[in-house]
Amino acid sequence: MNYLTQAIQWITDPANAAGANGVWARMAEHFLYTVVAVAVAALVAVPLGYLVGHTRRGRGVVVVTSGAARALPTLGVLTLAGLVLGIGLAAPMLALVLLAFPSILAGAYAGVEAIDPVTVDSARGLGLSGWQVLTRVEIPLGLPLLIGGIRSAFLQVVATATLAAYVGAGGLGRFLFLGLKTQDYPQMLAASLLVVALAVAFDIAFESVEWLVRRVVPSGRREASA
């Protein structure tokens, strides 16, 4: 309990707030790294997931490789990448993109795959082209699962982005490592609380988006029976 009050004091202490190594700057870095990593991962994973979901080809390969990618220890990836790319942002970014990739990919193809085949067939029966089936039926109906995948990617990345500080790239991990190495546990706890706060903020944002999507996008089943 004592640590907790000290941690909150640490966060609210104006001396820790400002400057290049202040809470706000580190929080902004952390937020930015998370968004960029997930965005870059999504840029590749979403089209690939749609391709797999739409054509139903290569699913086995994708499932196995993305499953294996999930098991990669991020610190290991970061160290290996760092040995090639040097210190700085490049290595942790690569590691975070790899971390975000499987969830988003799974969300994209599972979203398409989960649609009732009858819905897709009737869309084809109406004379829609493959592209039209994808853009008008599969993508909209698969949206909730895709967003779920992106949401879990965000949560993983926001927690793991603390590793950026391992190679001097800043973020909230800076306080975490410094606290750990100097036995300044209130500072460590403060950093953890800030990461948790970011994660909760992301999650609330996604919850709202999902709620909106659920209202706008009808479920595949209802579409099928309509």
Binding site: T79, L83, I87, Y166, V167, G168, R174
Partner: peptide, 11 residues
Amino acid sequence: VVPVEDSGGPL
């Protein structure tokens, strides 16, 4: 200081 947390290791 450029913080690299591997204690003078390969990074």
